[in-house]
Amino acid sequence: MSQDSDTSDTNDKHTGASTPGVMVLDDRPERAAMVEASLERAGFRVVSMLSTASGLLHQIEQHKPDVILIDLESPDRDVLESLAIANAHNPTPIVMFSGTDDQDFVSDAMRSGVTAYQSQTLTPDIVRPIIEVAVNQFRYFESMRRELRESEQRLEDQRAIERAKVLVARQLSISSEEAYARLRRISMDKNQRLADVARTALAALHIDEPEQ
């Protein structure tokens, strides 16, 4: 997961000539891994990936990141900022309110859940593409999660309908085709989703949906 910076990287960093070292702070390991891979494809260097604040101070001292990417909703942001206040060498919040353009960019990044901290030796044109990579990956991750949720929902709906069909058929001593047709008719008459009608039927029969 984490990748230690080697000696040459550290030396380069002090000359300010090499690619900046990025630390990723994210409690979702899959998303952090996506950000890391994507940054490396774009030629950036991830020095460390952390999931919580424990050891944050130590990690920052050890890896001396130039840029820190952090989930907007991480409670560790105040901790991170306290480190910058205590030591001017630690990355500070990205200076985002200098121009209208920047503000739009930062608002946009925040909406996707990304915030960033940068060392004061870096200029915004170096940091911006790093944030863009993270923003894209956060968005991609969110769309994947949405798709997953939707497909899980479809599967659950299907299970409820199947079970209701069987149990209504048994209860009324009709065929499961006839039970399905009746459920569909109720669905159309009441203008309710078929899965919701199925769940109502299951509840009426005092039968819970199957666990899996």
Partner: peptide, 15 residues
């Protein structure tokens, strides 16, 4: 919100 940093930033960007 989970941090004072979040409150400040969301205030400043207008969310």
């Amino acid at each position: 919100e989970v941090s004072w940093a979040n409150l400040r930033d969301k205030l400043v960007v207008g969310s």
